[in-house]
Computed example of a mutant assay.
Amino acid sequence: MRHTLVFTAPYLHSPKSAEISGILNGCNDIEARNSVIFLDRLPSSDLPSLYKYAIATIVPTLFEGSCPFPILESLAMDTSVAIGRIEVTEEVIAEMDAFITFDPYSVCEIEKAIHDLWMHKTTLLPRQKLAISNVLQRKWSEVAGEYYSLIHQIMDSN
């Protein structure tokens, strides 16, 4: 049974577009090649469905500003996650051992993480949700209040 690997960004305007095209075109298995999909930007209203109907989510980002949103969004929609080991994930998630993690620069580690996620997807979700339950229970108004307080502290110290 084949599954679809969906990337949530187009590659045609990427600095690596020629390399990605070469890899895809070099794949002799037409069914496998056609099972890799690169989406354009999605409307935010489509994101919950994307997470909800995914078997799992892989978050290899190196951009700390977007983290941990994809992790939280995926878990909120009951989809387990494998995440890159970058500083911000280790700062936000106290129980990293509940997650399958990988070096986002290592193709071998990403490949192993995808395999492990596939093999353990059903048993991971409860552990992952528990590991960040404090974050999942927070309200945006609480986060905004913390930022408001921090901004005032900075302004008062000047």
Rank of each mutant, 00 (worst) to 15 (best):
69 F>T: 07
71 I>D: 00
75 L>C: 12
78 D>L: 00
75 L>R: 11
86 I>C: 02
75 L>H: 13
110 I>M: 15
91 E>C: 09
131 A>F: 06
102 F>S: 06
112 K>C: 07
107 V>C: 08
116 D>H: 10
112 K>W: 09
67 C>R: 09
89 T>G: 00
96 M>W: 00
57 T>I: 09
78 D>A: 03
82 A>P: 10
79 T>D: 04
132 I>E: 05
70 P>A: 08
101 T>K: 14
55 I>T: 15
126 P>Q: 03
121 K>T: 08
100 I>L: 03
118 W>V: 05
127 R>Y: 08
114 I>R: 01
58 I>K: 04
109 E>W: 10
63 F>D: 07
76 A>K: 13
66 S>N: 08
63 F>P: 00
115 H>F: 09
52 K>D: 09
54 A>N: 13
71 I>T: 11
111 E>L: 10
58 I>N: 02
73 E>S: 06
105 Y>R: 13
55 I>P: 00
78 D>Q: 01
122 T>D: 14
92 V>Y: 01
125 L>V: 10
81 V>H: 10
137 Q>Y: 04
135 V>C: 09
87 E>I: 02
132 I>M: 08
121 K>Y: 13
103 D>Y: 01
53 Y>R: 08
68 P>Y: 01
135 V>N: 12
137 Q>G: 09
133 S>Y: 04
64 E>T: 15
120 H>E: 12
95 E>A: 08
93 I>C: 03
90 E>G: 01
89 T>Y: 10
54 A>P: 05
119 M>D: 03
118 W>Y: 08
59 V>H: 07
93 I>A: 03
124 L>R: 07
61 T>H: 15
129 K>S: 05
119 M>H: 03
59 V>T: 04
53 Y>F: 12
87 E>N: 06
65 G>F: 08
124 L>M: 11
97 D>L: 09
114 I>N: 09
55 I>S: 14
123 T>F: 06
137 Q>M: 11
56 A>K: 06
74 S>P: 07
75 L>I: 11
61 T>Y: 14
93 I>Y: 02
65 G>H: 14
132 I>A: 02
109 E>M: 15
106 S>V: 11
